[in-house]
Every structure is written in C-alpha cells, then in structure tokens.
C-alpha cells in the first residue's frame, strides 16, 4: 500500500467533524462523482445511510454517552423535573434513548419500579423537594420518587441519539464518534448503498459490513473502560451492567 496515500487519508479522517466530510468518502468508494452523484441521492440516501450507521453504532456500543447540564450552555440541553408527577418523558431537549444517570443536588439513586412497589408501597403518593430515586420505564419514560413540590433542575446522562436534527439532513450534522472509528461509518454506508443494486457486488460487500461490526466490537471493548460491555461479536455473551452501574 502507498503509505503516503494512507497517511493523507488518515489525516483527512482526523479533521472530519460532520456528515459532509464522510459522504464524499462514501461516494469515492462507490465510484460516484463527489459533486454530481447519479445513482444515489446524497441527501436522501448517502446521508441517511451514514446516520443509520451511527444509529447502529450507538446500539452496538452504547456510544455516544452524553451528559446534559445547564452548565454546558446547550440550547435546551437540560431537564427540568416538573412538580406533581411520578412519570416523566424524555424529550428532544434531552435526546437520550438510554438514560443511565440522574443528578440533582446529589446523586439520585437508580432503582426499578418493582423494587419501589415492594420496598415502599404507596410510593406514588409521596411528595418532596428533591428526587431521591429514579427508574427507567421503557426507553422513553422514567419515574421519580417522590413527586416534587416545585420544578427541579437536574443533570441527566446516558446514551444519546447520535443525530438529533430531523430530516432532511444537511450534511452539517456532527459525527459524535471518536475520529479513529469514523471510517467504519463509511464502510457501513458503502455497504448499504449497494442494497438497491442487489447484485453479486452487494453480497460481496457484506464483508465490508463485517468490517464495520468488527470495528464496533473494538469500540465496545474500548468503551468498557468507561462503562459496561454491551456487545459481543457472537451475540452469545449476555450484556451486563457493571458494578458501578449496579450501585
């Protein structure tokens, strides 16, 4: 391999920050013009495939993990727990599809609704100033104890939707993965682009998808140092929470 070309390619990868940077690499792989793609729509296909790649990566690896706090200065990037409710919905301001941690004036302990029912019957009726327990209810709701008497600002963290802006994608959407894994996203989009061709080329490209999976396995192992291992290549090893999360 021409190392100088490889080095340049690596350099390009390192400065990427949004979908537009990746879409041209997908077009290159498809032997399509970067400026005048004929068989694929950049807006309606290539960018969609790249977002799809990020979504699958998020489910495979549990990345990106995001902490939403008013201190970050994010537009709408905080959660205010309303008073008088036990059940609260995650919304577009806090686009976590895997909520993992809640912090108020101190840590809010994670539990389950079943534990609440067994350990604290009638917990739904309790009222207080700050939350002391929270528990997930599916991927989009969570419960708190006690019901609050006034709104409380909280810091919430978990696995976020990689792209939060609605379609159509402009290309300016950031790619929130470590730069060394972004080439895997290009692999995924290149592979899926071939689905509509449906020829032997597509079947051959399954190896490229396989490469994406391998890279996600690497990322998952890398992420283990931060949290739980959520993916195994064979799908044979149960995922589990770490002792840290169990606490």
């Amino acid at each position: 391999m021409d190392l100088s070309v490889e080095a340049r390619h690596d350099q390009v990868i390192r400065v990427m920050s949004n979908i537009s940077n990746l879409e041209v690499l997908v077009l290159d792989r498809l032997e399509e013009s970067r400026t005048n793609s004929q068989f694929w729509s950049v807006q309606n296909e290539i960018r969609v495939f790249l977002v799809e790649a990020m979504n699958e990566a998020a489910l495979l690896t549990g990345e990106p993990e995001i902490r939403y706090s008013t201190n970050q200065g994010l537009a709408g990037g905080s959660l205010v727990l309303p008073p008088g409710l036990n059940v609260i919905q995650l919304n577009e301001n806090v686009p976590l599809f895997g909520m993992m941690r809640l912090e108020s004036s101190g840590t809010v302990k994670k539990t389950t609704v079943w534990d609440m029912d067994r350990m604290l019957p009638g917990w739904e009726n309790d009222v207080g100033n700050v939350p002391d327990f929270w528990f997930p209810i599916g991927l989009t709701l969570f419960g708190i104890h006690p019901q609050l008497t006034a709104p409380v600002n909280v810091i919430v963290s978990g696995v976020a939707e990689p792209v939060t802006s609605p379609r159509p994608y402009t290309g300016a959407e950031p790619v929130d993965y470590q730069e060394e894994y972004r080439d895997a996203l290009v692999d995924y989009a290149t592979h899926i682009s071939g689905l509509k061709e449906g020829t032997k080329e597509f079947m051959d490209s399954i190896k490229v998808y396989d490469r994406f999976i391998s890279r996600m396995q690497e990322l998952s192992k890398f992420a283990t140092r931060k949290g739980s291992l959520r993916f195994s290549r064979t799908l044979g090893v149960p995922a589990s929470t770490t002792p840290v999360e169990q606490r």
């Binding site: 895997g98 399954i206 993916f231």
Partner: peptide, 24 residues
C-alpha cells in the same frame, strides 16, 4: 438479508435494554 438485519436490530435493542438495566 433484510430479515436478518431486522432480527439483528431486535437483538441489539433487547441487549441494549439489558445493558442499561432495563430488562423487560
């Protein structure tokens, strides 16, 4: 191929939910 991708998605979401302590 598409059927397997759908099924893979089901497994991923099941495992994801298990991984974040949300096993139904």
């Amino acid at each position: 191929y598409c059927k397997k991708r759908f099924e893979f998605g089901v497994v991923l979401v099941q495992r994801f939910m298990e991984g974040i302590g949300l096993d139904t």
